[in-house]
Amino acid sequence: SKDAAQYVYDEAQKGVTQVTVNGVTFKFDNWQKLLKYAQKLLN
């Protein structure tokens, strides 16, 4: 959902490398990768 994507995006902006959405945890090597993933979700 857009809300989940926005949440992931906001978390990535904080510099975190993992985020949990609806009980599913996504882990990334660095926050830039998390940010890229979030941007994909938002598009």
Rank of each mutant, 00 (worst) to 15 (best):
G15H: 10
Y37F: 12
K2W: 14
L42S: 01
W31P: 00
W31N: 00
L35C: 14
Y9W: 15
N43V: 03
T20W: 14
N43A: 07
D3S: 03
G23Q: 04
A12P: 08
Y37E: 01
N43G: 03
D3V: 04
T17I: 12
Y9T: 13
Q13I: 12
E11V: 14
V21H: 08
D3G: 04
L42H: 01
A4E: 09
T25H: 08
K36H: 04
N43P: 01
T20E: 06
Y37G: 00
V19S: 03
Y9C: 15
L34I: 02
N43Q: 08
N22H: 12
L42F: 07
Q18I: 11
V19N: 01
F26H: 03
V8N: 09
T25R: 08
F28Y: 04
K36A: 11
N22W: 15
T25K: 05
A5G: 06
A5Q: 06
K40R: 06
E11K: 12
A5H: 03
A38I: 13
Y9R: 05
L35D: 00
K33W: 11
E11I: 13
A38S: 01
N30F: 15
Q32L: 12
S1L: 12
N30W: 15
K14I: 13
T17R: 03
Q39E: 02
L35I: 03
Y7L: 14
Y37I: 07
V21W: 03
S1K: 11
S1R: 04
A5K: 03
Q18P: 05
V16R: 07
K40W: 10
V19L: 13
T20Q: 08
N43L: 08
K27R: 13
N22L: 13
W31L: 07
F26T: 04
K40I: 04
A12I: 11
Q6L: 10
K27Y: 13
K2N: 09
Y9K: 02
Y7D: 14
G15M: 11
Y7Q: 14
W31Q: 00
Q39V: 05
N22Y: 15
Y9N: 08
Q6V: 10
D3P: 08
Y7T: 14
D29A: 12
K14P: 09
Q6K: 06
G23F: 15
K40D: 02
T17A: 08
K2A: 09
T20P: 06
V16N: 07
K14M: 10
Q6F: 04
K33Y: 07
A12V: 10
D3R: 05
V8G: 09
Y7E: 14
L41T: 00
S1D: 10
V8K: 09
E11H: 09
Y37N: 01
W31S: 00
T25L: 11
T25S: 09
A12W: 08
T17F: 13
Q6M: 03
K40H: 05
K14R: 09
N30G: 09
F28L: 13
T17S: 02
V16S: 07
Q32G: 06
V24K: 04
Y7S: 14
K33G: 02
K33A: 07
K36M: 05
Y37R: 03
D10W: 14
T17G: 07
L34Y: 02
V19W: 14
A12L: 10
G23I: 15
G15T: 14
Q18H: 08
F28C: 14
L42I: 03
Q6W: 12
V21R: 01
L42Y: 02
V8Q: 12
N43S: 05
W31A: 00
K27V: 15
F28V: 08
K36R: 09
T17Y: 12
K33E: 06
Q32E: 04
L41Q: 01
K27L: 15
K36Y: 07
G23M: 10
